[in-house]
Design a protein around this nucleic acid. Structure first.
Lengths: 199, 199, 199, 199
DNA sequence: TGTTAAACGAGACGGTACGTCTAGTCTTCGG
DNA sequence: CCGAAGACTAGACGTACCGTCTCGTTTAACA
């Protein structure tokens, strides 16, 4: 059997070393400090090997996201059956995560990369927002089945809201007070409209 | 009377030219393409004149924000007295604004600058999120006074939510369907919890 | 019966293609533009096939010289019996050859290779200067036998002189006026010393 | 009065450092080992400062020649009035100079640069061959005036011959035996033609 | 009305990183 | 086991910016 390809095969070791070096440097010093030279040196690899497989440092970051070299431990909501507390607990866990300046810095570095490179943005969505969105939607649908959430609730919009609320604060370098989290959950579950029907 | 200062006075013309050039270039080519050399050349100014008054290109961007050279036409909610439709209309206007790729690109460029520089982040908050937050809070409080919004609503959290929902989409290069806007407003006003009290 | 050697035998075709490609590229673009990659590509050969048999591009050039892929049509003095006109004719032919910019460029490329690599220098001497030297020495010795050249003439030095005179001009990008050739021959045969013995 | 030029003036210190570094590195490691990076590092100068003023490393070498950073101590014939011994002594001195491997290596490096760059070739001629040629011509003309050299001697051709004889050997990595020098002088002054008139 | 001092346009400075190219080595497949 | 293909480390290439530092010029306030 033949592969139809000749020549030396791509070094998986080099690939790993590059992605690991990129993830490490990104977390340590941010996006602006990241350079292809430094990635190559840290990975013990020729610069050309980086450029052979990726078009730019952003593309390397995109693959880091895809392969879980950053943001690997995704924080997803638990499903205890109580949708309201599940969502609240998840939101608190996420806020805790971003309270660590290291994590917040990594997050901002990713946002910087994403705002300049469509591919990073897509991967970041696939890896972070997307799964969170899915998990939240499932969580809320479970709430509907359990009778905790009204069955005509705009579930995807709510999921977007929850993610956006956290993201906004992270990018704005604003520490998120836990009270905000409760407010968010309260507003979303109970609504802010006055219960005027009774009047 | 003396000013205590001698020598030539700062050129307001140069200052304006620099801020205008920065705003133009930022909108045209994004944050990564922006360079102090280009700013100076475009403004017809020596590079040192930029560095004399600002510490970095980020600082120039921050002042652009502060002085309204970018994001000058802030989109704020109208106040017709109907809080729910005011919020809905505002949100739709904002989504329309970000639907234009030019505006979305400028927004992402600002986010990139903000994620790397605390000062830009602060100015962006002051100029964009802050006023929006204030306006939304006022809008919702007016709703409370008008009996449209329950008086124990977590108003600041709701404002955060609304802003974050839009921001998330803008940074993720995701076009925001108008249906989402309605869902967001619906969820926030009516809540997603099942009306289980009556049972 | 076996030859004691196994596997595929060295491809004479590949060897020829490499030497031909080297000679062609050297003549076309000079030494600095020559690269092993280009040689291999032009020859339709893998780079390793070059390095398997030669240690560097200089070594390939050296073998090109040795095998007559460059400077194959060596210009040697005819032997008509008239040493003075033989030498003059040869010198004129050589000057004609180097008058063609292509030939001069090739010659300079070889000189560049020779000045950086001892092996090329040795081959260049073997191939070019050496045979010329020998031929000239023979020519002059024939002149001695014919009574045209004094029998105590420093024959090897004269041969060196003739070669060096041409070489100098070629390397210095100086077109050689034919008058110079006659002057050289005149000086060497008649000497420059005044015929003061008679006084 | 104005100079018509604005902006910071060229640093003479940087210029000197670059030329000195180039001369040093060229003498130490040859032309192929010379790189603009190394020149800049050795000179304590930014790479761009090299490229701002010279188009290539060859151009720097050309200016090194022009300004006497290499080949500054030109070996010229003394003029004692005895043309034959003056020429002989000069030739011996030159051969001595090139006997030192350092000097021979520098000379070959210059030849390599010259064979690839017309400007270097011109400067090398101006700085080395040209003055030697002039000095030799003067020396021989003095010999004519003193009655030592026949007055119809092809003086420029003889000068060329003397220079070329040395050059050829230097480039060919051939140590020049002192006997050769005497042979050269003998051939040039006495001629190699048999003194057939007396027979 | 000069003198002084700061800001100006211009542009060279020492550096860092870019993305490309080449050298010479190593590894795979196919003949 | 040879030869092609081509990936590998290493490092130079020439360019673009960084932030700093002169230059000579211009423009105030001070003397």
């Amino acid at each position: 059997m033949t592969t139809g390809r000749r020549g030396r095969v791509r070094s998986e070791e080099a690939r790993r070393a590059i992605l690991e070096a990129t993830a490490t440097l990104l977390a340590a010093s941010g996006y602006e400090q990241l350079s292809v030279d430094r990635i190559a040196t840290t990975a013990g690899v020729g610069k050309q090997t980086v450029y052979r497989w990726w078009s730019s440092k952003s593309a390397v970051i995109a693959e880091c996201l895809l392969d879980g070299y950053v943001l690997s431990d995704l924080i997803v909501p638990a499903k205890t059956g109580d949708a309201r507390s599940d969502v609240g607990n998840w939101l608190r866990a996420l806020v805790d995560f971003l309270d660590d300046p290291k994590n917040a810095a990594l997050f901002r570095a990713l946002a910087a990369a994403a705002s300049e490179n469509r591919e990073v943005s897509d991967r970041l969505y696939e890896r972070f927002s997307g799964p969170l969105h899915t998990a939240l939607v499932e969580c809320l649908r479970a709430g509907i089945r359990a009778g905790q959430v009204r069955d005509d609730a705009p579930v995807p919009a709510v999921a977007d809201i929850l993610i956006g609320a956290v993201l906004h604060r992270a990018l704005a370098h604003i520490a998120i007070p836990l009270g905000t989290v409760d407010g968010v959950v309260d507003a979303l579950f109970s609504g802010v409209a006055a219960a005027a029907r009774e009047d």
